[in-house]
Design a protein around this nucleic acid. Structure first.
Lengths: 395, 395
DNA sequence: CGATCTTTGTCCTCTGAGTGGAAAAAGTCA
DNA sequence: TGACTTTTTCCACTCAGAGGACAAAGATCG
């Protein structure tokens, strides 16, 4: 297989990103958008065709004269994304425009360690390859549920990933697949996914709050992920909500996660079931033997008052933290995502209510707070976006 | 007076910023730093000399052969900075290297409205001009104590600046002085000041927390001020600390400012004086008729336990908010500044203690938290830096 | 003190990227 | 079918920048 090609200069990179984000375009339309002379544009496009990154695709409709030639990203371009979650692996393959062509997902405990989990991820990729979806791989983006040294391409002291600390994920997978690889925090990738395909497409500065097993926040500044000096920016799960709250796994009291993380919600649900406070949850506990955040969602949807109350309380706590962050960061959009976000509009309403009441008016004046619409694909689309931004840049 | 010149391309802009930040340099040394051929470098430097922005300054010591010519920013370059505070005006003039050549300051209530205050600021500038310090003005930076629309160069709904809302500060002063003008929030300018001349010189991402009449935060991302989508980023004074705290001027309960802003501290000090809890403060109240934050600092320095206790409590509250922001933003440095920061190491110790205990370990692993060393000049240096970054950029 | 080597500055030529005009190709419209 | 538009290709021309040659200025050594 030929070594996958890269653009040779900023103009080529710009054209590739344009074709990726806006879809196929006629040469004439491209000329209207980019500020290049006709001759130069033709030269750069011809070179991209030579590199195999771009190809002609017939003629566009006439704009009153000669018809212009359409160009598109080569249909054989492929990006791969692994989204490693606390309890799941998602693997997807996209084309150059980051449309998901194939997506497999399975339960998998990240605590089995890097070797086992990555091995399994590659096996899942093998499935997609067997379907003939992957003529070649131009790049791979990987998300993991913990802090990452982006520069080194490896997790650093991740709390819920024993056996992953400083494991060279980027280099290992790069070796295996023979393509450029980037590794990032899974929440950052979800934010990138929203930036590319979700509600944040036209927003430069926004926050994505993921409520799942843990609670994290992806920060986008000027259209790019902000990672902080040691890659741990957005780690909001252990922000203090209230001094006299539950003791958190981190040792402090009253962390947001101790109020409303996946484990906390399950704990409260079982308590409500056992105390008889919630008949709906008691029934679910009877059936399944244990309770999770999803069961609270079910019970709330069925109208169980105790479950609704739990979601309200959680939303209030998230809202309190978020209100502070909104005052501080003044984002143009806040997206709520993650498993618990499936709890839906009850949760959203409570968060909105607190944020709009407690944040600086100037910051909330025109601030949409919305639920993610990307369901399970935000992470993998973000992974593809991450690596395609890298590959579609001038060396 | 000749229209003040601007660099014509990115290379010239780069050279100007280099000379500004690193001081005079020989042409040979500049050649080592910038990646340009000798001929090109000579051409660009000659053009800068023609523009009057740069001039020769003798010969450097030999490095083993012919001595190289030193170049420096023209000594007649001048930047002006206005730092409008809640109760003060600072005016300073700097040379091209942003060294403060003259600085005047006076008490002035910002609530007198834009026209009066700006008029007074220009009068103060006149004083400096009378001293012959200002052959010409190449640019002016202005800081105001409230949210600013940076793009429009005007305050927007500033809470403590009646009569300033949407007053076209940038255009008015630009008209008056006939030079480029930029307007920003005063805390942002302090952050820029620290970036240029203070402890943040080598840090890309940091926070500057100003505790004064209000409490605000300057956010630096990648060496540039982050302002948020509506220019209100860093407005942390009304982040909730505790639900059952004092009622704040903003209408909510338990805001940080309601605990530890200038007004809150004065209020608590008078209470402690009247209740007899603090003999030192009672004596100061007797003398001055009223108390302010500075008096608390005095009393604490004299060993008054009640005053020390007040500072400790305040530091704890600031620390609680800051701990959350550190987890979220993962800065490389936090600087504490502002009038109340004069309360010194008692305050700093308390803030550190809370932040190091309550923030994510990865974020605090290598996080200095320090007091500003720039005293009163951070704001005006930041103003000069703001406008010089603008003037020293390619159109 | 002179010869030689090193560094710096200047000049000049050469190259290659990019621009814009002209003309050919391909369509539209009346 | 003819006049007009739009698109593409081709080509000559311009200009920025690189880099070599040489001169100027100083260091080093005998």
């Amino acid at each position: 297989m030929r070594m996958s090609a890269r653009p040779q200069n900023v103009h080529q990179a710009r054209l590739l990103r344009l074709l990726r984000d806006e879809g196929p375009r006629s040469r004439a339309e491209l000329g209207d958008v980019v500020r290049l002379s006709r001759s130069k544009l033709a030269v750069e496009l011809d070179r991209l065709v030579e590199l195999g990154l771009v190809e002609g695709a017939g003629l566009a409709a006439s704009r009153g004269g000669r018809r212009s030639g359409i160009v598109r990203l080569s249909p054989s371009l492929r990006f791969v994304a692994f989204d490693i979650g606390a309890t799941s692996i998602d693997v997807a393959v996209t084309d150059g425009g980051l449309e998901v062509l194939g997506h497999v997902s399975e339960q998998c405990d990240v605590r089995q360690g890097a070797t086992v989990v990555l091995e399994r991820a590659l096996e899942l990729l093998g499935k997609l390859r067997d379907e003939g979806l992957i003529p070649q791989v131009h790049g791979t983006g990987i998300g993991v549920p913990g802090p990452v040294s982006f520069r080194d391409g490896m997790p650093v002291v991740p709390p819920i990933m024993p056996g992953w600390d400083r494991f060279p994920v980027r280099d290992a997978i790069g070796q295996e697949l023979g393509c450029p690889v980037l590794v990032d925090n899974d929440v950052n990738l979800m934010a990138l996914g929203e930036l590319h395909a979700g509600l944040a497409r036209s927003v430069d500065d926004f926050l994505l709050v993921k409520i799942g097993t843990g609670i994290g926040c992806g920060i986008v500044v000027d259209g790019a992920i902000y990672r902080g000096v040691s890659g741990s920016a957005g780690d909001i799960g252990h922000i203090r909500v209230d001094d006299d709250g539950p003791i958190c796994a981190c040792g402090n009291a009253g962390c947001l996660e101790a109020f409303f993380g996946g484990a906390a919600l399950a704990r409260d649900a079982e308590a409500a079931a056992r105390s008889g406070e919630s008949p709906a949850l008691a029934a679910l506990l009877e059936t399944h033997g244990e309770l999770s955040a999803e069961h609270v969602g079910e019970a709330a949807a069925a109208g169980d008052p105790a479950a609704v109350q739990m979601i309200r309380a959680g939303g209030r706590h998230v809202g309190q933290v978020l209100a502070g962050l909104v005052s501080f960061f003044n984002p143009g959009l806040v997206i709520i995502a993650g498993g618990v976000a499936g709890l839906g509009h009850t949760l959203l309403a409570e968060i909105r209510s607190v944020v709009y009441r407690r944040s600086a008016p100037l910051a909330t004046g025109n601030l949409p707070i919305v639920l993610s619409e990307l369901a399970g694909t935000a992470g993998v689309v973000g992974g593809a976006r991450l690596i395609s931004d890298h590959v579609f840049s001038a060396s």
